[in-house]
């Protein structure tokens, strides 16, 4: 069910996004930073699912609040003539890498476990 929801959401979002009117170039930075923030939230969500401490409320609030906050920060940065969005980018991308590493390590562990189990099984048979 969740898979269907994800696919449906992605497809509808992509279709509407392609057909949406082009926003002015000035505002594209905001969109970009919002995308990065959302992606960070997504990876964080996947990590929490794997760690089995996934909370929908935390995920959703993180997803939207991070995006909105990053947009607000970027706007502030434009007003102050300082590239605050770079800091936000750094944090988000850094966290994305950490999360990706955690996800990767998790699957490597799983794979290793499975391998160990496979090796252990024939031994058990031999012992019998």
């Amino acid at each position: 069910m969740i898979v269907i929801a994800i696919i449906l959401g992605c497809v509808i979002g992509a279709v509407i996004g392609i057909n949406a009117p082009v926003i002015p170039y000035t505002y594209s930075t905001f969109l970009a930073i919002a995308v990065v923030a959302a992606l960070d939230s997504v990876f964080g969500g996947i990590r929490s699912v794997l760690k089995k401490n996934f909370d929908l409320v935390v995920f959703i609030t993180g997803f939207f609040c991070n995006s909105i906050l990053s947009i607000a920060l970027t706007y502030l940065g434009q007003k102050l003539n300082i590239d605050i969005y770079l800091a936000a980018l750094l944090v988000f991308v850094g966290r994305m890498f950490t999360n990706l590493t955690i996800i990767r390590l998790h699957y490597i562990d799983k794979w290793k476990e499975a391998k160990a189990q496979k090796q252990a099984k024939p031994k058990a048979i031999e012992e019998k």
Partner: peptide
């Protein structure tokens, strides 16, 4: 589960929407 699916679906929708808009702009 339904609530979760819908919420995640909306999140995905928002993400893809913004992403594709951005792709277009760029």
């Amino acid at each position: 589960k339904l609530v979760m699916s819908i919420t995640i679906g909306i999140a995905c929708f928002a993400l893809m929407l913004v992403m594709f808009m951005q792709f277009k702009v760029v």
